[in-house]
Design a protein around this nucleic acid. Structure first.
Lengths: 343, 343
DNA sequence: ATTTAGCACTCTACGTAAAAGAGTGCTAAC
DNA sequence: GTTAGCACTCTTTTACGTAGAGTGCTAAAT
């Protein structure tokens, strides 16, 4: 659809704008080494590109700025994923080089390094909980009325929740119950925990445990809600460094959004789709990030997508760099995850 | 030192400034009902108060603004703690009215309600960990090489850490070890855990567990570090609503500080002192909050201070309201804490 | 001796105007 | 098809004058 020259010029404009954050003029482009045309020619092409919707003009006699459509074309057709230099690869390797104790620590480290290397806000979600299988469930009484239920998954994730004990329950009952739960539910994926609790455990409990219904309810309450995977958000204030967010009003909504885990989760959750995803400016549903872009990708366990890492930055984002970093890290995570639990 | 009239005027100025955030002029004060002097008289007094260091003038021919010294005098001598109205008391009571499952949830709720009712940033620290006593310690193997150690305190707090297993250790060994640990360490305050681990457990372990030294080290690593009490920070973006923080540069440092748990902890930690503490503007050591004030108070368990709740806001803070709220909530927390674990 | 009215003075905030600068769009020449 | 040239437009910056708020001082009033 676009001529080669139009593509070249669009690419040059976006490239410049990403660096300068200022509307780009025709003369700036014609001075570039990779463009051999006079400013007048560029002006004509710019005019056409604007008419086609790829560029916008803040006002007459200002330079051009890429539109959402422009960025979209850029990331779909023009972008050359930045190849990482040795320093950068070195940095990234460190995430995986440390002796790995726990996958969640690696995830956390991933988010940190992403934020640090991009200067944008980074997020990383722990492996989706429905892939975790139960390794152990413990009920620890604190006193006559209260206890803590603890669930440990085969990935080492620990969830705990306080529960009320039925009045007058005997400690031996709790122990019996714990045994039943562990025997019956071992290796159950968390997503099926509730289901199997009623299907298989209830009957057994009925025989051995008094007041089993109260306990059953209490225990059900501790089962982690779906899609409550761990989330690490890093570099939330990086957005303040961007020139387009020098106005407090423009950042307030975003920072407030960061305060709510639920909202952040919704924002980055990619639903069924996986792999590299880019949402640019108004392509986002949430108003607060209408002039931000979100780039996410997935990592895999046994070929299945189980987690997401991503970046939130201004629409004027260094897409090439971000994509390369995300790719590299996602691959690393997939590899580690598979190694760690497959042996 | 200050005459009654000077105190009256200083109080009026601060009172006005807290509400308006604008330098206060002599005429504004003379119009107040509680002040029966002409603007000229006020001007003279203001001039004196400035000379004494209680007021500052942004520039000639602007009104006066309280200095740090002025605020200090205000909170020490002039302030009348705002009595809470019924609506407010109702709100506060809700924090404690919900059926209490877990003290940490109450603490969290406290931080939220503080932020919401003051429109400043609120913080609440869970009871200091050295007051927690061990209720249970569990070691859950994940596979041949890895395990998770879980520590539960009598307050229901759960800490967990991944540990590496010594190669070739037998599952039975782990069970034996867990039994020893629980028998020997039950009810030990967390602060003495390390000490008693070596004093009392090591000998016993030596007899029953192979490779006990490796395990000992691994377990020691899971013992929570001192002063790692839970912390709830709420309303971190409230500061953006304050007129004196409309400039991005002025908030950036503060928001960045909020990103680091460690720094937040240092900022609010009151060391040995307890009870109501107010640090105004430059009285703070940390540069980022040089034009903020921090008000904290303690809550108690058996008469001993075990936790802190507090507020961070602009120096121009509604001290009276904040103090009343903190007092009320701290008392409530103390009461609950004592009830919950004393029965 | 204290308080107050009056007034000149100072400084900021605001609005307007002029000038400078950046960039376009069009026309005509190459 | 490309480019040089130029008039035109719009923003940004600077300058300047005015209005407003508030002070500080003096002299009068209490």
């Amino acid at each position: 659809m676009l001529s080669d020259r139009q593509r070249l010029i669009l690419n040059a404009i976006i490239d410049n704008y990403i660096r300068s954050a200022e509307p780009v003029g025709s003369r700036t482009i014609s001075k570039r080494e990779d463009v051999g045309f006079s400013s007048a020619t560029i002006r004509n092409e710019m005019s056409d590109l604007e008419e086609l919707g790829y560029l916008e003009q803040p006002h007459t006699s200002a330079g051009r700025v890429p539109s959402t459509k422009g960025y979209r074309f850029y990331v779909d057709n023009l972008i050359t994923p930045m190849s990482l230099n040795t320093d950068e690869v070195g940095n990234l390797k460190q995430v995986f080089a440390d002796r790995i104790i726990h996958f969640e620590q690696v995830i956390e480290h991933t988010a940190s390094i992403l934020a640090q290397m991009t200067n944008y806000t980074a997020i990383a979600f722990g492996p989706e909980i429905f892939e975790h299988r139960l390794r152990s469930i413990q009920i620890i009484p604190l006193n006559e009325r209260q206890a803590v239920a603890i669930i440990v998954t085969h990935t080492g994730r620990v969830e705990n929740k306080p529960i009320d004990l039925p009045p007058g329950i005997h400690p031996g009952e709790i122990e019996k119950l714990t045994n039943i739960l562990n025997t019956k539910l071992m290796d159950t994926p968390l997503s099926q925990l509730r289901h199997r609790l009623y299907e298989e455990v209830a009957a057994e409990m009925k025989q051995h445990v008094e007041q089993y219904q109260n306990m059953l309810q209490a225990i059900e309450g501790t089962m982690p809600a779906e899609s409550s995977e761990k989330m690490f958000l890093r570099g939330t204030t990086k957005i303040l460094d961007q020139p387009e967010f020098q106005d407090v009003d423009k950042v307030k909504d975003i920072l407030q959004l960061f305060e709510s885990n639920q909202q952040v989760h919704n924002l980055f959750h990619t639903g069924n789709s996986h792999g590299l995803q880019i949402r640019i400016g108004q392509e986002n549903d949430v108003d607060a990030v209408k002039n931000c872009s979100i780039v996410t990708t997935s990592y895999y366990y046994n070929g299945k997508p189980v987690g997401t890492i991503g970046i939130l930055g201004p629409t004027r984002m260094e897409y090439g760099k971000v994509i390369s970093l995300l790719d590299y890290l996602a691959q690393g995570l997939s590899k580690i995850l598979t190694n760690e639990f497959e042996k």
